[in-house]
Amino acid sequence: MANGICVYAESYNGELETVAAELVSAAKGLAETTKEKVQAIVLSDHAEELVKELDKLGVDEIYAVKADHDITLQDDAVSAAIAEMLKKIEPSAVLVPATPQGRSIFSRVAMRLGCGMTADCTEVLAAQREDGSFYIKQNKPSYGENVFVTILTKEGIYPQMMTVRPGVYAACEAKESGNANVKFFDDIKIEKSGVEILEELPAENTTDSILGAEVVVVGGRGVLEDDNFELLEKFAEKVGGAIGGTRPMVDSEMIPFNHQIGQTGLTIRPKICISFGVSGAIQHTEGIKDTNLYVAVNTDENAAIFGVADYGIQADLKEILENYLTL
């Protein structure tokens, strides 16, 4: 019988990713209803240290595979090992971070196990069937209009596998120590991969600036006209904010992809968020959480953004920016 809500504990360079603690929170929430154990799996050449870190998050069971080399990007081999682990653990659900690594590895696992995978969930809810068995409602924004869809793994198929967006669940707090049951699968080996890293070149670190920023200024399609973007840059400088944007801003190459906010971009939690010329599509607004102050400027009084922001300014963004810059 499939049992347990299992979290993939993503790590990089021997460090647990913050999203692991977020997913443990989500798993605990589900397990409260389903009364299952919360489990975590980890594979790394630093497995022992990672197990200690994971234990502090208060999970019930930890399953680990030790690698004898760095397995970054060796997703063909890693996914095969994870599939073997899951066959032994038999969890009812697996929560995977919706990150490049999570997606890449678990797409293969989902294919291998035939269980499928729901992508980019923003909410996972435990629900009960008439026969008393539990299942998970996997909710996510849909395409186009502002609706969400609920996706289910068909009855009888296990594990229910889903990726969960980083930033939607608050990370659970680490304690001094934990008392999880730890099992190392020494019989599971990570086979040779077709992928080999030749070189790591530092790339410009531009994402952190926006993830950590207390003030984020968001530009939307309305900023693409005239010299509006220049005004926006001056405004951002004046308020000491980082610049993020909507998809059209990225598509038109005004801002780099790693500054896109929303479902297929970043989730941010700034104290202050001010958006200019953004309509408020759900795929975008899903990426902005927990702001103390959210002001939107838009010429259209019916823009959806006015249903999300705290304050609305119905006006031409150019005029507001020009006036602001004189203050």
Binding site: G116, T118, Q138, N146, L152, T153, G307, A315
Partner: peptide, 26 residues
Amino acid sequence: PTVTVDSFQPETKKSAKMLTGTPAEL
């Protein structure tokens, strides 16, 4: 293995307080 079973509107949590005035005042 997966199936979409429902689509729903998100609850509209709030509506923004609209500020009024001239552009300079805004």
